[in-house]
Design a binder for these strands. Structure first.
Lengths: 140, 140
DNA sequence: GTTATACTTGACGTTAACGTCAAAGGAATA
DNA sequence: TATTCCTTTGACGTTAACGTCAAGTATAAC
Protein backbone atom coordinates (compact mmCIF):
# COMPACT_ATOMS: atom_id res chain seq x y z
CA UNK A 1 0.00 0.00 0.00
CA UNK A 2 2.07 2.93 -1.11
CA UNK A 3 0.83 6.47 -1.39
CA UNK A 4 0.69 6.61 -5.15
CA UNK A 5 -1.34 3.55 -6.05
CA UNK A 6 -4.34 3.77 -3.80
CA UNK A 7 -6.50 3.37 -6.87
CA UNK A 8 -5.20 -0.12 -7.42
CA UNK A 9 -7.75 -1.34 -9.91
CA UNK A 10 -7.78 1.97 -11.70
CA UNK A 11 -4.10 1.62 -12.53
CA UNK A 12 -4.05 -2.09 -13.00
CA UNK A 13 -2.76 -3.31 -16.33
CA UNK A 14 -3.29 -6.67 -17.96
CA UNK A 15 -1.19 -8.83 -20.20
CA UNK A 16 -2.72 -10.09 -23.36
CA UNK A 17 -3.54 -13.52 -21.99
CA UNK A 18 -5.24 -12.01 -18.99
CA UNK A 19 -7.37 -9.94 -21.33
CA UNK A 20 -8.18 -13.04 -23.34
CA UNK A 21 -9.56 -14.77 -20.30
CA UNK A 22 -11.30 -11.65 -19.07
CA UNK A 23 -13.28 -11.20 -22.26
CA UNK A 24 -13.18 -14.69 -23.75
CA UNK A 25 -11.53 -13.65 -26.97
CA UNK A 26 -8.33 -14.69 -28.71
CA UNK A 27 -5.07 -12.76 -28.66
CA UNK A 28 -5.44 -12.36 -32.39
CA UNK A 29 -8.73 -10.58 -31.79
CA UNK A 30 -7.14 -8.13 -29.36
CA UNK A 31 -4.28 -7.37 -31.74
CA UNK A 32 -6.79 -7.02 -34.52
CA UNK A 33 -8.79 -4.53 -32.51
CA UNK A 34 -5.64 -2.57 -31.79
CA UNK A 35 -4.79 -2.48 -35.49
CA UNK A 36 -8.28 -1.13 -36.13
CA UNK A 37 -7.76 1.52 -33.44
CA UNK A 38 -10.37 0.27 -31.06
CA UNK A 39 -7.82 -0.43 -28.34
CA UNK A 40 -4.63 1.38 -27.36
CA UNK A 41 -2.55 -0.81 -25.10
CA UNK A 42 0.71 0.68 -23.87
CA UNK A 43 4.03 -1.07 -24.40
CA UNK A 44 6.51 -2.47 -21.96
CA UNK A 45 9.32 -3.25 -24.36
CA UNK A 46 7.72 -5.43 -26.97
CA UNK A 47 4.76 -6.54 -24.92
CA UNK A 48 1.33 -5.00 -24.72
CA UNK A 49 -0.22 -3.86 -21.49
CA UNK A 50 -3.94 -3.18 -21.42
CA UNK A 51 -5.15 -0.41 -19.14
CA UNK A 52 -8.45 0.37 -17.50
CA UNK A 53 -9.38 2.37 -20.55
CA UNK A 54 -8.86 -0.67 -22.73
CA UNK A 55 -10.99 -2.77 -20.42
CA UNK A 56 -13.77 -0.22 -20.63
CA UNK A 57 -13.48 -0.13 -24.37
CA UNK A 58 -13.58 -3.89 -24.62
CA UNK A 59 -16.76 -3.99 -22.62
CA UNK A 60 -18.35 -1.58 -25.06
CA UNK A 61 -17.01 -3.45 -28.05
CA UNK A 62 -18.53 -6.72 -26.88
CA UNK A 63 -21.77 -4.97 -26.13
CA UNK A 64 -21.86 -3.31 -29.53
CA UNK A 65 -21.19 -6.58 -31.28
CA UNK A 66 -23.95 -8.26 -29.37
CA UNK A 67 -26.38 -5.75 -30.79
CA UNK A 68 -25.19 -6.16 -34.33
CA UNK A 69 -23.03 -3.09 -34.81
CA UNK A 70 -19.93 -3.31 -36.97
CA UNK A 71 -16.49 -2.69 -35.50
CA UNK A 72 -16.28 0.53 -37.47
CA UNK A 73 -19.57 1.77 -36.04
CA UNK A 74 -18.38 0.84 -32.59
CA UNK A 75 -15.05 2.57 -33.03
CA UNK A 76 -16.70 5.86 -33.82
CA UNK A 77 -18.67 5.78 -30.61
CA UNK A 78 -15.82 4.73 -28.34
CA UNK A 79 -14.62 8.31 -28.20
CA UNK A 80 -17.72 9.09 -26.25
CA UNK A 81 -15.94 7.52 -23.29
CA UNK A 82 -12.70 9.45 -23.64
CA UNK A 83 -14.10 12.79 -24.57
CA UNK A 84 -11.87 14.68 -22.17
CA UNK A 85 -8.97 14.05 -24.56
CA UNK A 86 -10.50 15.61 -27.63
CA UNK A 87 -11.27 18.95 -29.15
CA UNK A 88 -14.70 20.44 -28.64
CA UNK A 89 -15.55 20.14 -32.30
CA UNK A 90 -14.94 16.41 -32.33
CA UNK A 91 -16.79 15.87 -29.09
CA UNK A 92 -19.81 17.52 -30.62
CA UNK A 93 -19.70 15.13 -33.53
CA UNK A 94 -19.35 12.13 -31.30
CA UNK A 95 -22.21 13.41 -29.20
CA UNK A 96 -24.45 13.70 -32.25
CA UNK A 97 -23.49 10.21 -33.31
CA UNK A 98 -24.32 9.00 -29.83
CA UNK A 99 -27.79 10.45 -30.05
CA UNK A 100 -28.40 8.64 -33.32
CA UNK A 101 -27.08 5.41 -31.91
CA UNK A 102 -29.33 5.80 -28.92
CA UNK A 103 -32.44 6.19 -31.02
CA UNK A 104 -31.40 3.27 -33.17
CA UNK A 105 -31.01 1.11 -30.08
CA UNK A 106 -34.35 2.20 -28.71
CA UNK A 107 -35.96 1.36 -32.02
CA UNK A 108 -34.28 -2.02 -31.97
CA UNK A 109 -35.60 -2.65 -28.50
CA UNK A 110 -39.14 -1.91 -29.63
CA UNK A 111 -38.86 -4.25 -32.59
CA UNK A 112 -37.34 -6.87 -30.38
CA UNK A 113 -40.36 -6.64 -28.13
CA UNK A 114 -42.70 -7.20 -31.06
CA UNK A 115 -40.64 -10.07 -32.40
CA UNK A 116 -40.69 -11.69 -28.99
CA UNK A 117 -44.43 -11.36 -28.88
CA UNK A 118 -44.79 -12.94 -32.32
CA UNK A 119 -42.47 -15.75 -31.42
CA UNK A 120 -44.44 -16.50 -28.29
CA UNK A 121 -47.69 -16.69 -30.25
CA UNK A 122 -46.11 -19.00 -32.78
CA UNK A 123 -44.64 -21.21 -30.11
CA UNK A 124 -48.05 -21.52 -28.53
CA UNK A 125 -49.61 -22.60 -31.83
CA UNK A 126 -46.83 -25.08 -32.25
CA UNK A 127 -47.33 -26.42 -28.77
CA UNK A 128 -51.06 -26.82 -29.34
CA UNK A 129 -50.43 -28.83 -32.47
CA UNK A 130 -47.97 -31.07 -30.70
CA UNK A 131 -50.42 -31.73 -27.89
CA UNK A 132 -53.20 -32.44 -30.37
CA UNK A 133 -50.89 -34.91 -32.03
CA UNK A 134 -50.63 -36.62 -28.71
CA UNK A 135 -47.32 -35.37 -27.46
CA UNK A 136 -46.66 -35.67 -23.76
CA UNK A 137 -46.92 -32.19 -22.27
CA UNK A 138 -44.02 -32.96 -19.96
CA UNK A 139 -41.74 -33.02 -23.01
CA UNK A 140 -42.56 -29.41 -23.83
CA UNK B 1 -64.01 -11.86 -58.24
CA UNK B 2 -64.30 -15.49 -59.05
CA UNK B 3 -65.28 -18.22 -56.64
CA UNK B 4 -61.86 -19.74 -56.25
CA UNK B 5 -59.67 -16.80 -55.38
CA UNK B 6 -61.63 -15.06 -52.70
CA UNK B 7 -58.48 -15.04 -50.62
CA UNK B 8 -56.80 -12.77 -53.13
CA UNK B 9 -53.78 -11.77 -51.09
CA UNK B 10 -53.37 -15.25 -49.68
CA UNK B 11 -52.82 -16.65 -53.15
CA UNK B 12 -50.99 -13.70 -54.60
CA UNK B 13 -47.58 -14.42 -56.01
CA UNK B 14 -44.79 -11.97 -56.70
CA UNK B 15 -42.08 -11.80 -59.32
CA UNK B 16 -38.56 -11.37 -58.15
CA UNK B 17 -38.47 -7.63 -58.80
CA UNK B 18 -41.66 -7.14 -56.86
CA UNK B 19 -40.09 -8.95 -53.96
CA UNK B 20 -37.00 -6.78 -54.26
CA UNK B 21 -39.07 -3.64 -53.86
CA UNK B 22 -41.22 -5.16 -51.15
CA UNK B 23 -38.25 -6.01 -48.94
CA UNK B 24 -35.59 -3.62 -50.26
CA UNK B 25 -33.13 -6.33 -51.17
CA UNK B 26 -31.42 -7.32 -54.41
CA UNK B 27 -32.46 -10.17 -56.66
CA UNK B 28 -29.11 -11.75 -55.91
CA UNK B 29 -30.05 -11.80 -52.26
CA UNK B 30 -33.35 -13.55 -52.94
CA UNK B 31 -31.69 -16.18 -55.13
CA UNK B 32 -29.01 -16.58 -52.51
CA UNK B 33 -31.63 -17.19 -49.84
CA UNK B 34 -33.29 -19.76 -52.06
CA UNK B 35 -29.97 -21.53 -52.56
CA UNK B 36 -29.58 -21.60 -48.79
CA UNK B 37 -33.08 -23.03 -48.44
CA UNK B 38 -34.60 -20.09 -46.66
CA UNK B 39 -37.08 -19.45 -49.46
CA UNK B 40 -38.94 -21.83 -51.75
CA UNK B 41 -40.41 -19.89 -54.66
CA UNK B 42 -42.36 -21.95 -57.17
CA UNK B 43 -41.51 -21.90 -60.85
CA UNK B 44 -43.46 -20.75 -63.84
CA UNK B 45 -41.21 -22.07 -66.57
CA UNK B 46 -37.84 -20.57 -65.76
CA UNK B 47 -39.08 -17.76 -63.59
CA UNK B 48 -39.55 -17.69 -59.87
CA UNK B 49 -42.82 -16.86 -58.21
CA UNK B 50 -42.81 -15.99 -54.55
CA UNK B 51 -45.85 -17.01 -52.52
CA UNK B 52 -47.36 -15.81 -49.29
CA UNK B 53 -45.20 -18.31 -47.47
CA UNK B 54 -42.09 -16.73 -48.95
CA UNK B 55 -43.27 -13.30 -47.97
CA UNK B 56 -43.79 -14.48 -44.41
CA UNK B 57 -40.38 -16.07 -44.38
CA UNK B 58 -38.75 -12.94 -45.71
CA UNK B 59 -40.28 -10.90 -42.95
CA UNK B 60 -38.78 -13.26 -40.41
CA UNK B 61 -35.44 -13.31 -42.16
CA UNK B 62 -35.17 -9.53 -42.09
CA UNK B 63 -36.22 -9.51 -38.49
CA UNK B 64 -33.68 -12.15 -37.55
CA UNK B 65 -30.90 -10.30 -39.31
CA UNK B 66 -31.81 -7.12 -37.53
CA UNK B 67 -31.20 -8.88 -34.25
CA UNK B 68 -27.88 -10.30 -35.28
CA UNK B 69 -28.77 -13.90 -36.05
CA UNK B 70 -26.96 -15.69 -38.85
CA UNK B 71 -28.86 -16.96 -41.86
CA UNK B 72 -28.27 -20.50 -40.71
CA UNK B 73 -29.76 -19.79 -37.29
CA UNK B 74 -32.69 -18.13 -38.97
CA UNK B 75 -33.24 -21.03 -41.35
CA UNK B 76 -33.59 -23.48 -38.53
CA UNK B 77 -36.34 -21.45 -36.97
CA UNK B 78 -38.30 -20.79 -40.13
CA UNK B 79 -39.86 -24.20 -39.90
CA UNK B 80 -41.71 -22.96 -36.89
CA UNK B 81 -44.00 -21.20 -39.32
CA UNK B 82 -44.68 -24.19 -41.56
CA UNK B 83 -44.97 -26.83 -38.94
CA UNK B 84 -48.05 -28.35 -40.52
CA UNK B 85 -45.82 -29.81 -43.21
CA UNK B 86 -43.46 -31.71 -41.00
CA UNK B 87 -43.25 -34.83 -38.91
CA UNK B 88 -44.01 -34.59 -35.23
CA UNK B 89 -40.44 -35.40 -34.29
CA UNK B 90 -39.05 -32.50 -36.26
CA UNK B 91 -41.70 -30.12 -35.00
CA UNK B 92 -40.66 -30.96 -31.47
CA UNK B 93 -37.08 -30.09 -32.26
CA UNK B 94 -38.04 -26.83 -33.88
CA UNK B 95 -40.23 -26.04 -30.91
CA UNK B 96 -37.33 -26.60 -28.52
CA UNK B 97 -35.11 -24.43 -30.66
CA UNK B 98 -37.79 -21.76 -30.60
CA UNK B 99 -37.84 -21.76 -26.83
CA UNK B 100 -34.09 -21.25 -26.73
CA UNK B 101 -34.30 -18.49 -29.28
CA UNK B 102 -37.01 -16.84 -27.25
CA UNK B 103 -34.95 -16.79 -24.10
CA UNK B 104 -31.94 -15.53 -26.02
CA UNK B 105 -34.02 -12.69 -27.41
CA UNK B 106 -35.39 -11.82 -24.02
CA UNK B 107 -31.88 -11.76 -22.64
CA UNK B 108 -30.79 -9.52 -25.47
CA UNK B 109 -33.66 -7.17 -24.74
CA UNK B 110 -32.57 -6.90 -21.13
CA UNK B 111 -28.98 -6.16 -22.05
CA UNK B 112 -30.17 -3.69 -24.61
CA UNK B 113 -32.06 -1.89 -21.89
CA UNK B 114 -28.95 -1.65 -19.75
CA UNK B 115 -26.82 -0.51 -22.63
CA UNK B 116 -29.35 2.17 -23.44
CA UNK B 117 -29.25 3.36 -19.88
CA UNK B 118 -25.44 3.51 -19.91
CA UNK B 119 -25.42 5.35 -23.18
CA UNK B 120 -27.86 7.92 -21.87
CA UNK B 121 -25.69 8.56 -18.82
CA UNK B 122 -22.63 8.95 -20.94
CA UNK B 123 -24.40 11.29 -23.33
CA UNK B 124 -25.44 13.44 -20.43
CA UNK B 125 -21.86 13.68 -19.17
CA UNK B 126 -20.77 14.56 -22.65
CA UNK B 127 -23.44 17.21 -22.94
CA UNK B 128 -22.44 18.76 -19.61
CA UNK B 129 -18.87 19.02 -20.73
CA UNK B 130 -19.86 20.66 -23.98
CA UNK B 131 -22.00 23.20 -22.17
CA UNK B 132 -19.22 23.93 -19.72
CA UNK B 133 -16.93 24.52 -22.65
CA UNK B 134 -19.37 27.14 -23.80
CA UNK B 135 -21.33 25.31 -26.43
CA UNK B 136 -24.67 26.71 -27.42
CA UNK B 137 -27.33 24.43 -25.97
CA UNK B 138 -29.42 24.84 -29.10
CA UNK B 139 -26.77 22.89 -31.01
CA UNK B 140 -27.30 19.86 -28.82
C1' DG C 1 -39.06 -10.24 -87.40
C1' DT C 2 -36.44 -7.90 -84.42
C1' DT C 3 -35.86 -5.27 -80.51
C1' DA C 4 -36.50 -4.58 -75.70
C1' DT C 5 -37.36 -6.33 -71.22
C1' DA C 6 -37.27 -9.45 -67.43
C1' DC C 7 -35.28 -13.21 -65.84
C1' DT C 8 -32.09 -17.14 -65.64
C1' DT C 9 -27.62 -19.70 -64.34
C1' DG C 10 -22.84 -19.79 -63.60
C1' DA C 11 -18.53 -17.99 -62.01
C1' DC C 12 -15.53 -15.00 -59.94
C1' DG C 13 -14.87 -10.83 -56.72
C1' DT C 14 -15.39 -8.44 -52.21
C1' DT C 15 -15.65 -7.10 -47.28
C1' DA C 16 -15.60 -7.91 -42.37
C1' DA C 17 -13.78 -10.29 -38.77
C1' DC C 18 -11.12 -12.94 -37.49
C1' DG C 19 -8.05 -17.99 -37.65
C1' DT C 20 -3.72 -20.21 -38.43
C1' DC C 21 0.96 -20.77 -39.01
C1' DA C 22 5.94 -19.57 -39.26
C1' DA C 23 9.92 -17.23 -37.58
C1' DA C 24 11.99 -14.67 -34.04
C1' DG C 25 12.88 -12.04 -29.55
C1' DG C 26 13.28 -11.73 -24.31
C1' DA C 27 12.57 -13.36 -19.75
C1' DA C 28 12.68 -17.04 -16.61
C1' DT C 29 13.79 -21.48 -15.16
C1' DA C 30 16.49 -25.84 -15.00
C1' DT D 1 24.25 -22.37 -20.99
C1' DA D 2 20.23 -24.54 -22.68
C1' DT D 3 15.49 -24.77 -22.80
C1' DT D 4 10.91 -23.29 -22.04
C1' DC D 5 7.36 -19.96 -22.25
C1' DC D 6 5.04 -15.88 -23.56
C1' DT D 7 4.70 -12.75 -26.85
C1' DT D 8 5.63 -10.39 -31.15
C1' DT D 9 5.17 -9.38 -36.22
C1' DG D 10 4.06 -10.80 -40.71
C1' DA D 11 1.58 -13.32 -44.10
C1' DC D 12 -1.70 -16.14 -45.92
C1' DG D 13 -6.33 -18.72 -45.17
C1' DT D 14 -11.37 -18.83 -44.11
C1' DT D 15 -16.37 -17.98 -43.64
C1' DA D 16 -20.63 -15.46 -44.28
C1' DA D 17 -23.26 -12.78 -47.07
C1' DC D 18 -23.72 -11.04 -50.61
C1' DG D 19 -21.96 -7.96 -55.34
C1' DT D 20 -20.79 -8.01 -60.12
C1' DC D 21 -20.47 -9.49 -64.62
C1' DA D 22 -21.10 -12.51 -68.69
C1' DA D 23 -23.88 -15.25 -71.54
C1' DG D 24 -28.17 -17.23 -72.48
C1' DT D 25 -33.54 -17.73 -72.73
C1' DA D 26 -38.25 -16.39 -73.02
C1' DT D 27 -41.95 -13.34 -73.32
C1' DA D 28 -43.84 -8.80 -74.78
C1' DA D 29 -43.81 -4.75 -77.65
C1' DC D 30 -43.19 -2.49 -81.85
Amino acid sequence: MNIISTKSNEDKVNTITEMCKLFKVSARTLRFYESKELLFPIRRGQHRLFTKSDRGRMKLIMQGKRFGFSLEEIRQLLNLYNFGDHRTRQIKQTYQLGLKRLSSMEQQKKELGLAIKDLKTQLQLCKDLLLKRGADSRDL
